[in-house]
Design a binder for these strands. Sequence first.
DNA 1: GTCTACATGTCGCTC
DNA 2: GAGCGACGTGTAGAC
Lengths: 260, 260
Amino acid sequence: MAKVEVFERIDLRKAAEVLSKAVRSRRNIYLIAKCDVEYYGRSSSKLEEGERQIIIKSDGAFLIHRPTGHSPVNWQPETSYINVEFDEEEGKVIIKAVRSKPREIVVVRASEIPLIVSSVLHDSGAFYMYVSEKEIRDILAAHPTLLGEKFVTIDIEKKVEPGFIDLYLKDGKGNVVVVEIKRSTARVDAVRQLKKYIDALSKHLGHERIRGIIAAPSITSKAYELLAKEKLEFKQINLKVITEYAKKKTSAKGILEFFK
Amino acid sequence: MAKVEVFERIDLRKAAEVLSKAVRSRRNIYLIAKCDVEYYGRSSSKLEEGERQIIIKSDGAFLIHRPTGHSPVNWQPETSYINVEFDEEEGKVIIKAVRSKPREIVVVRASEIPLIVSSVLHDSGAFYMYVSEKEIRDILAAHPTLLGEKFVTIDIEKKVEPGFIDLYLKDGKGNVVVVEIKRSTARVDAVRQLKKYIDALSKHLGHERIRGIIAAPSITSKAYELLAKEKLEFKQINLKVITEYAKKKTSAKGILEFFK
DNA sequence: GTCTACATGTCGCTC
DNA sequence: GAGCGACGTGTAGAC
């Protein structure tokens, strides 16, 4: 069970003590603070006073969230140290989160801290991400017929001049097939990417016919127009089907990892 | 003053009520929950049970944070709706955060909720993001009239005995001008720094008049006092204007790179 | 609404 | 450590 300590309506001097101790003992900290924030580093910023939520994680990750918006207004991905102290002159709690590389610092000056939550959280639960582009690629490589033809896989992540071809196949007639995979709706940049690989490859292969395929769950109309113009093809892939294969593969992978 | 309500050690049925009400009334919510999480959308993921921190913001932003790491393990940048209910069968609190475009859903199933914080936060503080001091210096060097007079740039980062002068200008009357740039509020040490450069420079230039300027978005009263005493000047720079020039510079650079 | 380029991007890989 | 590409990238601006 999570150990949770709550500090409400404590004075700022005490708040600085509590925070300092919690940081040193690597607790997970959540606080509500009326504060201003300054950031110096690769860029710099100044946030004027207001009420915010601040999270300091056990590994030093530091996040300042405004009442709206998905992303933190200021943050520090990893900190070399976090210092908390009560500034007698200003009568404020100063939190400094310093990162050494790149050299960056976030300074919070809090005039009110109505709440501090200090907790020890136990979290060993595994996180599985399904059907990443890489997984789709591996599954299509193992089962190229999922693309709707009697394809045979020749190579994965084949290096060509400008980058890597996701899948390099041959079709039933022996034609070379270049496949560009997108996990979500394919856009014009995906088509350009595919074209780029084919152009590069054609320099090596000469007059051999090269088919180009975008494999994605869907494609934008603009992208399809360009695709048709370039005489390239679109093969729709079913993510649910892929996910099924992914799950099978995940369990298999788990077993492999167990034995290695 | 922020309105903060804390709910500790309440049973799950009550927790669902509290959360549901807090979501409807658009509070800022922080909770600690032992939960598992599933995500379906552009990709899909499964996070097995563990103790996490969850933030639900007043605009529907939804974040699930593990005890370590800068980025949330699951999230929803904006939600079309968030539903909280107590599942009688499982005896768990189910939180569903749904986003319509792209169609995505995050489902949290909580078996323990040791803490809920519901708050109303007032935050109207402006957020300023500005360029690095180096960029400000380069822009002011290219456009010295931004300092409000017919200045002409003579040198950048001019070496003098104790260090480097940010900007070395001449004014309309041919006077030498030393500029010390600060990207945020100039303090007394900035004035001392400027004075130091001028003193060093005056040894070389003799009796020639040397003007000293602090160029910063703002200056502390203490610093301004010292500045006046030393007969130095403060020129306020507008970071928004500088930022605009920074953007133009970026595009210009892009063109240069194209031609090189 | 879609496309495009930028970000204190971050993250994870190879070299 | 630097370089490069992917990301459930998010975000802002142009068309």
